[in-house]
Amino acid sequence: MSTLHTVNKSPFERSNLQACLGHAQNGDSVLLIEDAVFAAIAGNTFAPKLADAAQDIKLFVLGPDLKARGMDPAKVVDGVNIIDYEGFVDLAAASSTIHSWL
C-alpha cells in the first residue's frame, strides 16, 4: 500500500510541493509534472529539500515536461528519476492511491 503523489506547481509560485512532502509517507512516490519540474533542477534553492526527501520517498520527474521547458536532464537533482508518460502509468498502477496536489 503506497500512494503516488503528483505535484504540478513550481515551488516558487505555490506551496503544493511543500504540502505534498509534508504529508507523503515513507515508501510513497512523488512525481513532478508540468510546472513542478523546475524544482528538480540542481542548484535551485528548493533542491536540498528534494534531496532530503529522497531518503524516504521515491522521487520522479516527467521527462517531456522537463524537455518542453528547456531543463537539462543531466542537471536533475541526484535521486530524482526521469520518467515518461508510460513510466507515469506504471507508477500509478503500482500505487494503491493517487493523490494529485492541486
Binding site: M1, T3, G22, H23, A24, Q25, D28, S96, T97, I98, H99, S100, W101, L102
Partner: peptide
C-alpha cells in the same frame, strides 16, 4: 496534526482534489 493527516491520507482509496 500534520503527521496524523499524512497517515490518514495514506489510508484512502480515492483522493479527489481541486
Amino acid at each position: 496534526s500534520r503527521a496524523e493527516m499524512g497517515k490518514l491520507m495514506a489510508e484512502m482509496d480515492v483522493v479527489l482534489t481541486a
